[in-house]
Amino acid sequence: MSKIVEILASDPLMSAVYALRHEVFVVEQRIPEDLEVDEDDKVAVHLAALSDGEVIGTLRIVYHERKAKIGRMAILASARKLGIGRELMEHAAAAAFGAGADEIILGAQVTARGFYERLGYVEEGAEFDDAGIPHVMMRKLLRRT
């Protein structure tokens, strides 16, 4: 089981987060390096999944009024299929709810659509291209009682 921590762009762990994202997005998925880091990284809340002090998973949350947008989820290749992605997404949903968000939106790679559906996300709209990879927008409403 991993430990999930919330960090900001100024946190020393960000270098490891960026290194993991570079490995997954630039090296594995061949996304152009200049598209991987953007202005949202400066204002996002970043989640890092740690195992023995090593960053093995990450995602970021960018808030837009009462919406939380999740993006840049990356899991170390050797840590995939171990539930790290689910842990990150559950932590992100709890954080978004706690921050007052009513819903979460995300652009899912089409190959990961089923993963997000199992977590309660609903597909919206047509497929679109993002950095050469087919994506679909997905949304999850956060319940308030």
Rank of each mutant, 00 (worst) to 15 (best):
E87S: 12
V24L: 00
M73D: 05
T111H: 11
A96S: 15
E54F: 02
L13C: 09
K81A: 11
R30T: 06
A16S: 13
L8F: 13
G98C: 01
R21K: 08
I70V: 15
E123N: 12
I31E: 03
S15I: 00
S2N: 10
I31P: 06
M138P: 01
Q109R: 07
G114D: 15
P134K: 12
H64W: 05
A108E: 06
I75A: 00
P32L: 11
G98N: 12
A44Y: 13
L141I: 14
Y116R: 13
E39H: 08
D129R: 00
A49P: 10
A19F: 00
V136T: 13
R118H: 15
A68F: 09
S10R: 13
E127Y: 08
D130V: 08
A112L: 12
K67C: 02
V136W: 07
S51E: 12
G100Q: 06
A49F: 02
D52F: 07
G53C: 09
V110Y: 13
S51R: 14
T58A: 11
V27M: 00
E23T: 09
H46A: 01
V136A: 04
R143S: 14
A77G: 08
A16H: 04
L47C: 11
R66K: 14
G71R: 01
F128C: 09
E65P: 04
R139K: 13
I61C: 08
R21T: 05
G125A: 10
M138C: 06
V110I: 14
G132Y: 03
Y63W: 10
H135I: 12
A95H: 09
L13W: 05
A99P: 01
A126E: 15
V122Q: 15
V62G: 02
A74R: 03
H135T: 07
H91M: 07
A126Y: 05
R21G: 04
D129E: 10
L88M: 05
K69L: 09
E6Y: 08
K3N: 13
T145I: 14
L59A: 05
S15P: 05
S10T: 12
I4K: 05
E90W: 01
E65M: 07
I75W: 01
A44K: 10
I7P: 00
A68V: 03
D130H: 09
L82S: 11
I61E: 00
D40I: 02
A19K: 05
I84C: 07
L47V: 04
Y121T: 13
G98L: 09
I61M: 14
E65V: 08
L13P: 03
L50D: 02
K81Q: 13
L119F: 07
H46E: 11
S10K: 11
L20D: 07
K69Y: 04
Q109A: 04
M73K: 04
